[in-house]
Design a protein around this nucleic acid. Sequence first.
DNA 1: CATAGGATCGCCT
DNA 2: GGCGATCCTATGT
Length: 206
Amino acid sequence: MSYEQQPCTLPSHWQILPAAFYEREDVVQLARELIGKILVTCFDGVVTAGYITETEAYEGVTDRACHAWNGRRSNRTEVMYSPGGTAYVYLCYGIHHLFNVVTNKKDIPHAILIRGITPLVGVEHMLARTGKTKVSQTFGSGPGNVSKALGIHTRHTGQSLINTPEIFIASDGTSYPEEAIVAGPRIGVDYAGEDAKLPYRFLLSL
DNA sequence: CATAGGATCGCCT
DNA sequence: GGCGATCCTATGT
């Protein structure tokens, strides 16, 4: 058996989130619920995973901050119109690969940007990918750093988070009380006018 | 075809 | 707190 075909082995109590989770309508509620879930990647038999600590909701065609605002479609954003549970990865500032989860039904382009993780599995691989020697306080903080640590690339855009073994999200039962999660305006969306003020960013306050 | 700007990061002062 | 890196995408001619 080749090394590349080794399956990922995960703790047996982890539940991979099903399509029904992602297909729900309220993307803001979903963004809140993703805090504490585990984002997992498995590329060439290398498993890395981290607890999601920060998210932002992008509410489709009515949200000026969303790439699909006003029904915009392009080669890049077409993936946002896929069914919930699809990866939307795009390049930002020519350098950073930003990972989003598409939600809601097909043709409703909602998405959630994953902005931060706490390393959980495969820390040594994450350190190698990021060129670091130890996990600092800011390791895994920022959407560009999330993708770098987990090995996520724009080539993965359009992948299912349900049917493919490479990228998915799991729950180990961890949950937080309302007051442990703070909401605030999204980062770097000043161009969105009034929508820039919406409290669509969620952050674990620990 | 040309061009402006971006859902950022890390290093510098 | 400021700024350069770096290249794709969207938009306009």
